[in-house]
Amino acid sequence: MKRWHIRDIILVTILAIFMGVIFWVIGPLYTVLSAALAPFGLSPLANELLLGIWVMAGPLAGFIIRIPGAATLGELLGAVVEMFLGGIWGASTLISGVVQGFGSELGFIFTGYKRYNWPTLVLTALTTTIVTFTWDLFRSGYAAYHVPFLLLLFAVRFASVFVFGGVLTKLINNLLVRAHVLPNATH
């Protein structure tokens, strides 16, 4: 199994910063979306819809760097970048970063860091959704919602994580494989 070298560390950090910069742009979208949904009591849906974008750094780092811990580190560093760029959620960003990163990491752990294909992506999306949703049950008081609404939130979150952390990650990965820049990729 590969170990961390200075090049990989710099790469995962640069990736995290890139993601941070790209996501910085959609910050206002989140605010507008939650404001639009707020009168109907649906503002958590804005969070669920966009969550897939925030957690993308994890699976993307995991797919590109392919070293144990890459997904967690990528997502955690993304959170650090966000915090110092002027994100306001502070220490809770860091905790969320670890939770989200570890959620994606689980998917890679279950496949033994050997397979980088569709089933792995689906599994990663599923573990990310379950882990982050459990965290929100406590942190954001989701446990107090009625069950049907809770199920809706869960379904929307999974769809979002699957589209961004799954489909989009796979498309990016395909481009990289075709350009022959992933040295240890086979498909």
């Binding site: 070298h5 200075i6 090049r7 990989d8 710099i10 790469l11 640069i14 990736l15 890139f18 790209i22 996501f23 742009v25 959609i26 974008i53 993307l60 590109i64 961004f164 989009l168 498309l171 990016i172 395909n174 481009l175 990289l176 350009a179 820049v181």
Partner: peptide, 23 residues
């Protein structure tokens, strides 16, 4: 857009290039 794979592709190529050079 932020959902275009090409954007990420180009960004990742730049990141790989820079990390090689920095290392």
């Amino acid at each position: 857009h932020f959902w275009s794979p090409q954007l990420y592709f180009k960004v990742i190529l730049a990141a790989m290039n820079w990390s090689d050079q920095l290392a």
